[in-house]
Design a protein around this nucleic acid. Structure first.
Lengths: 239, 239
DNA sequence: CCAAAAGTGTTTTATGTACACCCATGT
DNA sequence: ACATGGGTGTACATAAAACACTTTTGG
């Protein structure tokens, strides 16, 4: 305890990093920016940046997203904290503690560079490799979290527009989990889970130009799904 | 973007806060410290403190726990990040960003004050009110998270000693969820979930001085439970 | 012999799975 | 007419809930 003075705290830089996901052409995509400055200039990275003195991490996350990728006031942006990365040495310049967020977007508005970012681009998740800093790990953590949260929360609706068909919702699950689901059973499970979705009376929409128009639904009020929508393959799922 | 220089970052103080839970006399208890200094001198609070320049938040959490409550090198301490609280104004002195942790302990070793803490005490969860800073909210968030994670992870074993009986494990669920569970069915579910617990061959222990000695189990390797152990009351569970 | 705690078995009910089938629309 | 996607019905298998019952210990 040797005379450590609790008021002589050390200053840290605090940043936010965002793993922003969307679904495009039935594939999970993540939003990356090309860094304009050192360190890691020219490398791809998650969007993010320094916290300003009078804003919360959540506000900083939305601001940086707008500045670096042009995605401002995105309707239906779901933003949630992932965790905070604080290992010494994760930024070569100085001591940086980063609050990481996972974000989900309905459809994929085009992104363009700005601020510290030379350019911004939607990238298929599998192609997002060798990112700057420890962003490979943050991205992998975010992806795991999303997959798991589809099971027991209504998170999947955050990938859908405000009004969506059950077919679109099912595609979200199939894309993120990488498994096919039985359509009749999926439909029943979703409708049997109170608060997951609510019907938009009388509304319908054609999906692929062909076929019967599908009824439309909105995201319901439930945060947690009871019962949950479990992944198939009860035995030995991927760690 | 008015000439904002990304290198002119503002310094923040970074702290950790810990919501440490254990089960005593079939009731959930949380570890509180009485603050020795301003602000909030004399008020009860979660243990925690400032991050040092060269340690991660996880290391700081363990260090502060030892300094403030005397709990050092606790075997079986489960420590996991809850989230980071970064709203401006949450500390009256200065801009403080706090990484909050939820921690679980098997049995309850006695705690004593130290460092900045005048005293430390295990408190029944219901009696932990009017804490310093925003610790009421952090504590409530941690409690919610623990309850939810019992369903789909093997977290409950972190409340048990290294070797435990299924009766003890069941008590954990009953205490945290506040519901009674059917013993035969609980037993079957736990044993049917691969990787949740593993039998200690030949070992047995008497539980209440009377009755048949119970077989002993260890925590298994599974992080996530499949299938999960869902709370009763399929309909309308507490938000 | 009784009380207390662990462990097993069984019946009933609910839930999940697989798949057949009908409906509405565009080409 | 037929391809395409939406929606319903149903039989079967599986799992969960409720509860009776046996086992092993201490008093």
């Amino acid at each position: 305890m040797d005379g450590y003075d609790k008021h002589a705290f050390e200053p840290f830089a605090v940043t936010v990093d965002l793993a922003v996901f969307t679904i495009r052409e039935a594939a999970l995509h993540v939003l990356l920016v090309e860094r304009g400055q050192e360190p890691y200039a020219g490398r791809w990275a998650l969007p993010g940046g320094f916290l300003r003195p009078d804003e919360s991490a959540e506000r900083a996350a939305r601001r940086e997203l707008g500045e670096e990728t042009g995605l401002t006031d995105v309707t239906g942006l779901h933003l949630e904290q992932l965790r905070t990365y604080s290992e010494p040495g994760r930024d070569p310049r100085m001591r940086v503690v980063s609050v990481a967020f996972a974000a989900l977007l309905p459809d994929a508005p085009e992104a363009h560079g700005g601020g510290d970012a030379a350019q911004a681009r939607w990238t298929p998740y599998e192609a997002a490799r060798d990112l700057a800093f420890d962003h490979d790990r943050i991205l992998a953590d975010a992806r795991d979290r999303i997959g798991a949260k589809l099971e027991y929360t209504g998170l999947a609706t955050a990938f859908c527009p405000p009004e969506f068909t059950l077919g679109e919702l099912q595609q979200v699950y199939e894309t993120v989990w990488g498994t096919a689901l039985d359509r009749p059973n999926f439909r029943r499970k979703v409708l049997a889970t109170p608060g997951f979705v609510e019907a938009v009376p009388g509304a319908a929409r054609l999906t692929g130009g062909r076929g019967k128009p599908a009824a439309l639904y909105r995201a319901g009020p439930a945060a947690a799904l009871h019962p949950p929508l479990l992944r198939p393959t009860t035995e030995g799922r991927p760690a």
